[in-house]
């Protein structure tokens, strides 16, 4: 090994890299929020008495979970403009992450809802609440608590998947580091640093999830 480490390009590019971390973070948080909306909305539609709605959700979940994320993001970025829908890389990445994460979230949250005893629904109905109220006020929170560990690990995965948005040059850590690497040819130094940054980002995410959990799911269970 006669390779001499030289972190100068990385240090010079540090402001850029740190901004790019923020970009990654933004993609991840926005993608997650969209995924939660899609996840909860999908679960509601999945329980609809209308068969076509249920099939729509099932079809969506199957489509997204059985195709590569890279193809999904390319589809939105390159194919949709031909249908007149033209989006910038960052919104494209957020939508793609939200849709992809949402499909997985639907299945995870559905499992949580099914784990809540039928008695909870019945108690709510017997008190004169509507089905939608029962779902929103009684079922949802314990259901989310039940599947919180699987949901958060899915969201860590979503956070790391933001790197694929580099393929459409969205502003995030991987694409910025690629630029620094191709200018400097310091592959080891750049990707070593980037790996460390991703670790930190994941760790921060987990802290946020834990904080949220301790606030929102603090009620005791037997």
């Amino acid at each position: 090994m006669n390779y001499t480490l030289d972190f100068t390009p990385v240090i010079d590019g540090l402001p850029n890299l740190l901004w790019a971390c923020l970009g990654t973070f933004t993609l991840a948080i926005c993608g997650m929020l969209l995924a939660i909306v899609i996840g909860i909305g999908g679960v509601i539609l999945r329980q609809s008495p209308l068969k076509p709605l249920r099939w729509l959700v099932i079809g969506f979940v199957e489509l997204i979970r059985n195709t590569p994320f890279l193809v999904q993001i390319f589809f939105i970025y390159f194919a949709l403009p031909l249908a007149g829908i033209r989006l910038d890389p960052t919104p494209t990445a957020i939508i793609a992450l939200g849709i992809n994460g949402g499909a997985y979230a639907i299945e995870i949250i559905r499992g949580g809802v099914q784990s809540i005893s039928k008695g909870q629904m019945e108690a709510g109905l017997a008190l004169g609440l509507h089905k939608a109220q029962v779902f929103r006020l009684i079922i949802l929170k314990p259901a989310l608590r039940a599947i919180y560990p699987s949901l958060t690990s899915q969201f860590i995965l979503l956070t790391l998947t933001t790197s694929i948005a580099s393929a459409i040059s969205a502003y995030e850590l991987t694409s910025v580091s690629q630029r620094i690497e191709s200018d400097s040819f310091r592959s080891f130094e750049v990707y070593f640093t980037v790996t460390a940054f991703y670790l930190v980002i994941s760790w921060v995410m987990m802290r946020i999830f834990a904080l949220f959990s301790s606030r929102y799911f603090s009620y005791p269970v037997r």
Binding site: S117, G119, Q120, E122, A123, G124, A126, I138, K141, P142, R145, F217, Y219, V221
Partner: peptide
């Protein structure tokens, strides 16, 4: 209505 399993809302 009062149920056998109480069915209080845990949260």
């Amino acid at each position: 209505m009062v149920f056998q399993q109480f069915n209080l809302f845990p949260h």
